[in-house]
Design a protein around this nucleic acid. Structure first.
Lengths: 196, 196, 196, 196
DNA sequence: AATGAATGAGCATTCATTCAT
DNA sequence: CATGAATGAATGCTCATTCAT
């Protein structure tokens, strides 16, 4: 029951924050969207920021297990990566508004403690780096700074997702989200250069 | 004189916004940092957001001519790209605070008209795409969605820059900024895959 | 049973209000301290203020009978007074927290009807005045405004009690509470002036 | 000019807080009473509590110099005391509303640092005690706990003032305020007891 | 009677912007 | 042009009270 209410608030907040951005989203507006009184929000969240953190946390959790599964699998790195991106983009396709938030909000006002936001913005790059480190040991990828590469990959994925979720053209949006995983992995593995 | 004042405000705003983020930066604080009265700011900018736009606009302008020069040159695409990134990262190295803003602020609350912010966030990917389109025609790169690739490249660059400018480790920061251009272009051209 | 619950709430409220003051004491906090649900409080009290009134009322009642007894006794005024203060300070010593409330809270936001609070803040001075009026008739005390003297005495007692109950030094607290009655009566009867 | 504005706010706040009590006084209401915008209040005070502190501080200051003068004079203790009370009650007579606040508000939520409120509630009793200590050394008063006596005197004065300022009967109010000083000092020096 | 989730009026405080000097 | 005091709409959050279960 309580879970249900918290869920209602999360969904309302996603709708509102996707539309207005975190800073222009008021707690009153979120409450209204949720069909609840403002006070009710504060029975489930300590403050406005915690709502955003929770939105991130839920999205992170959705990807978490998949991530761990792939990390431990024996598949070649690029297959792992593609599986992860496939999941990521399909989740975004299922919830464009959440995708907009994931891609646009960057509040780390102090970056205190581990919260859902830094779990995503900092945690995901770290996981990617772990993936690359393993691949490097296995000789699957060329030598290079896995830290830098992980950042590059994360950024690339985020920006492609951003392009999709903020696209006005719904057809284009769908296309990008469907093809992004394979196109990006292709790009990440072989680069853009035409074969000689 | 006027130009000078506007410049003073821009620099003060960069300092403040880099530290506090756009939303937590007050006009009073910026005025204080600039050694001016708040009112004076409004003689040079219509409102707070215009300051941010101007910060972006100036950074865009710094890269503009270089971009156009490269677009028209006959060099191979990856040399062009590397030249551009070299410039970009060296500019960031010269002004870390400005880099933090470039990389963190994403206010398109309506994305009204063309402003300095969208000139960067939307314009740069478009320019990259133009670059790729030309390269594609020349057969320098494999077929593929240049739009998606352009977004990926822009995102990768932004995130690597973010890693650098928010790094506490100044030595690491310097390293990343120095090597990012060549490492990224290498990555973009040939991918990560180990050669067989 | 019901009586018991009301008592539990009163005691919890004393603990909380002594610590936080009336205005910073929340009904939730009181309920928690009482081991009850907030709603339950409202089965025994109409609103938060009534709890405070009840606290005062109970303390007043404890002193009431003693007061009446003394009023009707034939003892000299200062013996009566000392007996009353003795009772008062020993009650406070038995329940410091209640004493803190008695001494610190002064909500007469309208002073509507007769409630426990005004029964204490207004009633006690009136009773003292009655005592003095009798003594005056008997020629036990000098002529003078008994209203003013009653107020002075009440205020003096309250402030001495305040000094004690808010003292950090538990030893000092005990000392004050033990000696206050006799010292104050001495003071009230003969004043401070050194005998010639 | 600024001084003037702060003064206007202080006076408005006295009016409002005397009527409604500190906790029921809203900043909006104070601003309205002052003929200013709420924001303006915050140009002169950090928060609502500081207004109350300032009210106390100003009242304290009015009595400060007189206090110091009397402390250093050679007059007999009871003359000093009477002079002080004379001042105190005449100040209250000049500003009944301020007197109501002085007598009713007891916010020491933490009693952090020295503020105007504790300067009054704690400071004045200490000053009285210092006065008594000197008198004791001089043999002007009987031996006894000057701490307790100081508290008693302070409380007596406060309560008599309270009786006056909250009296509906304006004539009575005037009378009390006029006679309080001499009546109280008489009481303090010789007590109430009828001479044998 | 007991519960405690839901309520929403209420309020302190912030801060971009204005404009008289 | 420069100033900075004044403005007041906007907003996050609290908490006494209610009421369906």
């Amino acid at each position: 029951m309580g879970r249900n209410k918290k869920e209602i608030i999360r969904e309302a907040a996603i709708k509102v924050m996707a539309e207005l951005g975190y800073h222009h989203s008021t707690t009153d507006r979120i409450a209204q969207e949720a069909g609840l009184a403002v006070g009710t929000i504060y029975n489930y969240f300590g403050n406005k920021e915690e709502i955003l953190e929770y939105i991130f946390a839920v999205e992170v959790e959705k990807r978490q297990t998949a991530f761990e599964k792939q990390l431990q699998s024996e598949k070649p790195i690029f297959e792992k990566l593609e599986a992860l991106l496939e999941l990521h983009f399909s989740e975004i396709a299922k919830n464009i508004a959440a995708g907009q938030i994931l891609v646009r909000e960057r509040q780390h006002p102090g970056k205190k403690e581990a919260n859902g936001i830094s779990a995503f913005l900092d945690g995901v790059p770290q996981l990617i780096q772990a993936l690359l480190d393993t691949a490097l040991e296995q000789g699957e990828i060329r030598p290079g700074s896995t830290r830098l590469l992980a950042a590059a990959i994360f950024g690339a994925v985020q920006e492609v997702a951003a392009t999709a979720v903020f696209s006005q053209d719904k057809q284009l949006q769908k296309e990008i989200l469907e093809n992004a995983a394979s196109e990006l992995v292709h790009f990440f593995s072989l680069g853009m250069k035409a074969s000689p």
